[in-house]
Nucleic acid binder design. Structure first.
Lengths: 399, 399
DNA sequence: ACAGCTTATTTCATTGAGTGAAAAATCTTT
DNA sequence: AAAGATTTTTCACTCAATGAAATAAGCTGT
């Protein structure tokens, strides 16, 4: 059941505050007059709201506009230091922690070992300590910390802050957000890691103001995040974006998930490595994707074939997304992107070839590698997502 | 670029009017007191808004609630005759036209030949005549007609009312809505036919108040419509839902679209018929899906195998949707559903088998045949979609 | 029949956010 | 320093929601 929005003065105020804040965020620096034109609010409303936002330090006055014949415009811009956020990315053996400002600039970064004991209490202690040490090391006033975002591979329930299932950490229905919240006395947001990356692309990256786009991550697995109608898509009960487990060939090999012929079993990094290993002696068999790339750089035909085949199959997988959703942007990301054109060029060719007539015409594809910083910034962007989110979306519009 | 919503009194009023209207629509018949509780509006606001809606005849007073100790509640319900809508479904050789009330009840139905000459002027004349004759034959006051919805296979641009591409009718970028609007002096809405069906499921069918669901149509082609986050998904530039043209097997046969191995080329009705025909003599070769079903009913192993295989492949195709989007409801529809369990049972098995671990647990699947009435009602529901749509969605919320 | 009780619905004074015209502030040019 | 232009603030006004109080309308028991 969905909640309906009820309109009243508070909602108007929230909508228009958010409108001003996001307009400034989008355009960089604007005068009140420009804000009036863009937002279509009255001059009075803009004056009132900007006054409040300046008083609360969300906006800064500074700089003057070009001379246009009379009084100069005073420019307003977002105050990036009005608050900050912590982003945590949880991995099998590591915790990556970043403190960022409102524009996603990393102020402090820390990389810690994940305790071997995956017991909730141990983990929560490690995570809260990571937060506190990072904040104090940064010198930023702790009161400026607006919240903590946590990204983790697996299925999460963002609304309740529960990690439903984490394959690498072995958790089942862990109420992580609540456990951390009571320790930190801060809002804590949990999301699937690919979704955090998707959100940060929407807020700070190539996905800015794009209505429909998808992020595909290539690495140990194949992941996917979507922004549809300007909103992060979260499916029913957090299950979605299992691009790695769509069936590529029903007669294919077993996948780690228990099904046969998943895309991941053909095209993720482990499949590439296995493809090369099986035709090699034990000594010179590659162990990592970097090893395979090194072989390919050295002219090894098998390594090149493995990467090419992976790319082609990935391209077919992504073509399915385009055929079904027709996003206007596809961001190909993840650690596996380092394989470069051995993998990416065939991927793009296959994507073009397997997409329905004309559907790819206006689709932009961006390839960008992801590192630990990017994952941590993604997690932190959960906090900014809430901050800049329209009160309408927050309230959950419905029909 | 997306438009932002600006909040003011008019927006509040529109939100709350819509809220009341949809609350009554959802619950059937409600008193003002119940409306106050459900909508969380104040008693004064409910009194004011219901008074206006009754004066404008959108709501009717009638009936009394159960005795709860004091004055009895006066029940309010939607007035289905407050307005009506025409739905047109365009097919290769026929025009189907239905006049419906606000609850999608068909008041008058007409079935006309599509002119052989697909020239815009000829078509538009035929369509406007279909509208006018249906309305006058119904006896309904023409002033009650709120608009006309048109459903057509192919790619449409609903915002501009343009048919971008219609494979069966051979149109390219025909501004059909505008041509009809100037003749009829009524709002005209154009949509892809599967999307009209999806919308009518959302408003009046199994998709009522479901946040995420998809409609899959099986017939001459394989189509798909989606409601995501309570909104009909329309992709970038109207291109989306090409489920029939996702690649099932890159080495497969040529599809009519020019690609190889599309799902449609394996599993749509023509593929089933061809599968049986190729192994038969000219006399007893089936020409329609009904022929294949008759053979299967008669115990023909080949016909049964053809239907089973089609079902299995469809199941794999639909599993891709579940893996990517995890909707909570899948409505399987279209004329091809008449093949029944020869096709549907293997489809459901394959769907289960190829869906990622646990993702199908809470997914409901409904199978329902579609006839001409359903298509025409779907088209008419475009009008009701606009009528009951939240002003927030209409304005286009964005971040 | 009717007082007494309960609940439903309307009425009405209040609040506050946006609106837009007018005033004030500020900058440049002459 | 005055004139002209533009930006920004101020302020009276409007209108929708709010919520308390008033009114309306039913039922029960005597």
């Amino acid at each position: 059941m969905s909640t309906f929005v009820r309109g009243n003065k508070d909602l108007i105020k929230a909508i228009n505050r958010n409108l001003i804040l996001n307009t400034v965020r989008r355009h960089g620096a604007l005068s009140r007059t420009q804000l009036t034109e863009i937002s279509r609010l009255s001059v009075g409303a803009v004056s009132q709201i900007t006054q409040e936002l300046i008083r609360e330090a969300w906006l800064l006055e500074g700089g003057e506009g070009d001379y246009t014949g009379g009084r100069r415009q005073t420019l307003l811009r977002l105050n990036p230091d009005a608050g900050c956020a912590i982003g945590l990315k949880l991995m099998e053996h590591r915790i990556v922690c970043a403190l960022t400002d409102l524009e996603s600039k990393v102020l402090r970064y820390q990389d810690l070992p994940m305790p071997d004991d995956h017991d909730p209490v141990t983990i929560v202690t490690a995570l809260t300590e990571a937060v506190e040490t990072t904040v104090s090391a940064s010198g930023v006033d702790r009161r400026k910390l607006l919240g903590v975002g946590v990204g983790v591979a697996g299925v999460t329930y963002p609304q309740t802050g529960v990690v439903h299932y984490s394959p690498y950490l072995g958790w089942r229905d862990l109420p992580l957000a609540e456990l951390m919240r009571v320790r930190l006395h801060l809002p804590v947001y949990i999301e699937n890691d690919v979704n955090t990356l998707t959100l940060s692309e929407q807020l700070f990256g190539a996905g800015r103001h794009i209505e429909n786009f998808v992020v595909v991550t290539i690495g140990r697995g194949i992941g996917m995040g979507m922004v549809l109608k300007h909103q992060l898509y979260q499916g029913a009960k957090g299950g979605m974006g299992e691009l790695g487990h769509i069936t590529f060939d029903a007669a294919g090999p077993m996948c780690s998930c228990g099904k046969r012929g998943c895309l991941e079993a053909f095209a993720a990094d482990p499949a590439v490595i296995a493809y090369v290993r099986h035709s090699r002696s034990a000594q010179d068999a590659p162990r990592t994707l970097e090893d395979v790339i090194a072989l390919a750089d050295g002219g090894d035909a098998l390594a090149r074939a493995a990467l090419r085949r992976s790319g082609e199959i990935l391209g077919i997988g992504i073509s399915t997304i385009v055929n079904l959703l027709c996003p206007s942007l596809i961001i190909v990301s993840g650690e596996g992107v380092i394989a470069g054109d051995y993998r990416i060029a065939p991927m793009l060719d296959a994507l073009q070839a397997h997409t329905f007539n004309g559907l790819m015409d206006d689709v932009q594809v961006i390839v960008e590698a992801t590192d630990d910083h990017a994952w941590a910034r993604g997690s932190a962007s959960l906090v900014m997502g809430k901050l800049f989110e329209s009160p309408l979306i927050e309230a959950g519009i419905a029909v």
